[in-house]
């Protein structure tokens, strides 16, 4: 989400930041956050995202630990290949758990959010589909067609008016990039059956 939003919703943040040296500041922030709870963490969307990220971290931590357990230890003294992943995995899961739990706790007292319009979520999903299509069609249709498609689609999803104009820009950009990077510099971009 755009950074302006952060500074608008949490005007205190910036006030909290800075006057005190960092480490102390971080601890102070935590203290002040405890005190200000309910003022700071009131956005339902942020809390939901935090909970999801925490859950993902717990999951990731478990994967890291399972993977670390499957590594052969090195024969000599010192640290083996699993030592650092084990530490990281445990911490990842633990911090994720705390994040998720705290967010879940705060969610109960969260204010009603300003809802994200459904249309924007659809646009985000559209962007993901567009990106995936780009990745998988690239070896088949070649760079120029795919990049032109990506540019046009992305611009329209972002709200560009006048599709024909955007398509013309996208097509031109894709060709210029292809000519410069493939023909001139020799980057060997994927080509379609028509040679570009």
């Amino acid at each position: 989400m755009s950074d302006e939003r952060v500074s608008l919703v949490h005007p205190r943040r910036s006030a909290v930041a800075a006057p005190v040296p960092m480490i102390a500041q971080a601890t102070l922030d935590r203290a002040s956050e405890e005190g200000l709870r309910g003022h700071l963490e009131h956005d339902r969307g942020t809390l939901l995202a935090t909970a999801a990220l925490g859950a993902l971290m717990v999951l990731g931590g478990i994967v890291v630990l399972v993977n670390a357990a499957s590594l052969r230890d090195s024969p000599g003294p010192g640290l083996g290949p699993a030592a650092v992943p084990t530490v990281v995995g445990v911490l990842l899961a633990a911090v994720g758990l705390v994040l998720a739990a705290r967010a879940g706790w705060d969610l109960r007292r969260a204010t009603k959010p300003e809802p994200v319009p459904r249309e924007r979520v659809v646009r985000l999903a559209g962007m993901l589909v567009l990106l995936l299509a780009f990745a998988f069609l690239l070896p088949v249709l070649g760079y120029v067609v795919c990049a032109a498609f990506l540019f046009t689609g992305a611009a329209l999803l972002l709200g560009a008016p006048r599709p024909a104009l955007v398509a013309a820009y996208g097509w031109t950009l894709a060709i210029v990039v292809f000519l410069v990077f493939d023909k001139l510099i020799g980057l060997a971009l994927p080509v379609g059956p028509w040679g570009f």
Binding site: R13, M22, R30, M57, V88, V95, G96, V98, R102
Partner: peptide
């Protein structure tokens, strides 16, 4: 630590994601 941002926990979470 200067980069961790206002919430220590969230900064550390970011750090751990990068480490992973």
């Amino acid at each position: 630590s200067a980069l961790l941002g206002p919430s220590l926990l969230k900064g550390v979470a970011s750090l751990l994601i990068g480490l992973t």
